[in-house]
Design a protein around this nucleic acid. Sequence first.
DNA 1: GTAGTAATTAAACGTTTGGTCAATTCAACC
DNA 2: GGTTGAATTGACCAAACGTTTAATTACTAC
Lengths: 215, 215
Amino acid sequence: MPQATLRWKTRPPSTPEALLAAAADLFAEQGYEGATVDAIARRAGANKAMVSYHFGGKEGLYRAVLAGLLAPLASDLAGLRRENGSARERLGHFADLLGQAAARRPALPILLLRELMSGGEHLDRETQRSLLAPFTTLREILAQGRRQGELRPVDPFLAHLAVAGSLLFYFASQPLQERLAREGKLGATRPDAGAYLRQVVGQVLDGLASAEARS
Amino acid sequence: MPQATLRWKTRPPSTPEALLAAAADLFAEQGYEGATVDAIARRAGANKAMVSYHFGGKEGLYRAVLAGLLAPLASDLAGLRRENGSARERLGHFADLLGQAAARRPALPILLLRELMSGGEHLDRETQRSLLAPFTTLREILAQGRRQGELRPVDPFLAHLAVAGSLLFYFASQPLQERLAREGKLGATRPDAGAYLRQVVGQVLDGLASAEARS
DNA sequence: GTAGTAATTAAACGTTTGGTCAATTCAACC
DNA sequence: GGTTGAATTGACCAAACGTTTAATTACTAC
């Protein structure tokens, strides 16, 4: 008989699946060292020995989490890179992809940001590539827009940082936003992710647009 | 006699000062749980018992680090809030202040971002206020710009996230940038902080500028 | 100089960590 | 129903953690 409080669409998650999900949340909330194997296993409803059994240890679990989150995003982005269209269209599409990925797994952008801050030392080369995929894609789009005169001749690397920073920061600041909203310290209403992404992309594009593209 | 390899302008740093400096760097690099008291004391050239003696423990040291970094920034920002001028000028000044603070102590923006991600649970209310000071200041500037018709009627909270995210992300991604530059994976040259801040502020302002302000 | 206090040290403490192990349960197949 | 291999469990371990302690040194006031 299935549990009373929790129902799954078809089948209960396997132990590795439950561990991956719990680990993604806890690694995002508390960082790699902050999240203990015990706490992860407890949240997953499993024995902590299962971490070593299925993933070879804490670090293996961490890598599996990131690989599992980054792989689908990387493949989506690969599709986007084959598309053609204006830089504005592709940038909008790019933001949509990131937004959807973050909506599916809120832990993803936070883990990404954490990994950036520590310099990506924890990762194998394959996952490192996946980690950089969003950034290389974005850089490509911006370079294209500049080539075609759609964007001002800004340093693509700088523009790239501005776009990525705006997007990642929105998701990463979610914990504090929730906290402040809970305490009533956030004056205005909190925007949803979709509205934010649309405004940021529009805003950044307007800032980057060349004079002729503006008219 | 002073040490051979390291020289100080006037006097060697006291043990609490050395601990604060070492802790700022290590907490930024590895996070609160990742940085061990042992490693901090070793880098500071002190005995690890000094952490408990001078700061009452690891958490006290962490709070002292953040308070020490945030207090001068908060007072600078208080000065900025009393200034008058166009939103563009004040926003430029704001970015300059942050840039200078980050140049003095590169650990500051990273610690700020880490604290945002964890929801600021580690901090007392006084330091919480200091932590939010940059954000309230920025929000004020943006609201002013919007009132005076200088900026488009965007949601100030959203615009605020975009500006703060761009700036913080630049500093926080410094470890990865250094790593990639070291490995030659960063195509272009790396910009310096000043150039970045100027471009981002200009870029964001252009994106936010109202139609009449643009002409 | 001496007394008294603050600063510093090395060692040890108790706790928590990630990992391991033998024993047990489970599931599929014959 | 018995066999086999994978999955799971609770107990256990050595290492690392933050903190405390006792003893020693450095400094200051008188």
